[in-house]
Design a protein around this nucleic acid. Structure first.
Lengths: 156, 156
DNA sequence: CTTGAAAGGTTCGGTCC
DNA sequence: GGACCGAACCTTTCAAG
């Protein structure tokens, strides 16, 4: 398993392929092939190699939460009583479906999480009835994202 | 254009399809069809309907930044001199490839961004030579993500 | 929702540096 | 060995019923 290795070499053709697919994972490979000027089979072979190198983890459908009525996104900084409480806290956070990301951070807080809720009232319930109830959580700071103005992946 | 409408109805079959594809956008539709017990074309029709409703925005290849040598992720809270500087600041941030997300937030800062860098030195350069140079940026607070412990989409 | 035909994706054997 | 191509086979897509 040659993986998570930072010595992966990709050439210009690989970059072109990745740029197409990072925007739309279901873009026809033959269309890319015609644009670049090689056969579909060659692209497929390169993709298999890139996958084996660990460079891409897979592909995901992106759903628009607003259409499902989820319009409130927020970041919450969490203070823990003791640093050793982290693994249990993460385990508890995993069980809360509104929690989309969880980062173990330097700085003020022990943990920074991103949550997605239907509205402010839903966010308040998640805060009071779910997050504040977790053992070890002493205090939280909430930052509501009024507008996500940039959302992209690493630039290749 | 019936879009961004929060009155989209999805049934159990739609949910199953979405759950499969949110994990892996290139999963064979016929495989899902066999699991659910309807034809591949039927799934395709439901997907077209869901796409028309605005529920999904597309699909993306997910690349692993670590393999490319990008190992330092951080959140940076940005204080702006004046709130009106926001549009210009976002425009400037868009030109910095290391900036992956940008949120207009309530609370302490005007802006919260997520950056991805090769290492701490690279992060320092991005902070000092790019972000601090933006007109209107008065002060920043940086939180390095030592470990992203949860990363997922809205639960369906 | 299903069928069926056209377009696309995948794999394999072979060719050419 | 490494990269690419072409053809056979399977999957996806789309229109018609």
């Amino acid at each position: 398993m040659k993986n998570s290795n930072s010595s992966v070499k990709i050439d210009g053709i690989d970059k072109k392929i990745l740029r197409y697919l990072m925007e739309d994972a279901r873009r026809p490979i033959l269309e890319i092939a015609r644009n670049i000027g090689i056969s579909g089979a060659a692209i497929h072979q390169r993709l298999r190699k890139l996958e084996a190198s660990g460079l891409f983890v897979g592909s995901k459908f992106i759903v628009n939460p607003k259409v499902l009525g989820y319009t409130t996104m927020a970041y919450i900084g969490i203070f823990l009583d003791k640093a050793m409480a982290n693994p249990q806290a993460v385990k508890a956070l995993e069980k809360i479906p509104e929690v989309l990301e969880c980062h173990y951070t330097t700085g003020n807080w022990s943990i920074l999480i991103k949550v997605l809720c239907r509205d402010n009232e839903h966010l308040m319930q998640v805060l009071n009835k779910k997050i504040q109830q977790i053992d070890g959580v002493s205090r939280t700071e909430t930052f509501i994202s009024l507008n996500q103005q940039i959302d992209r992946q690493i630039h290749i």
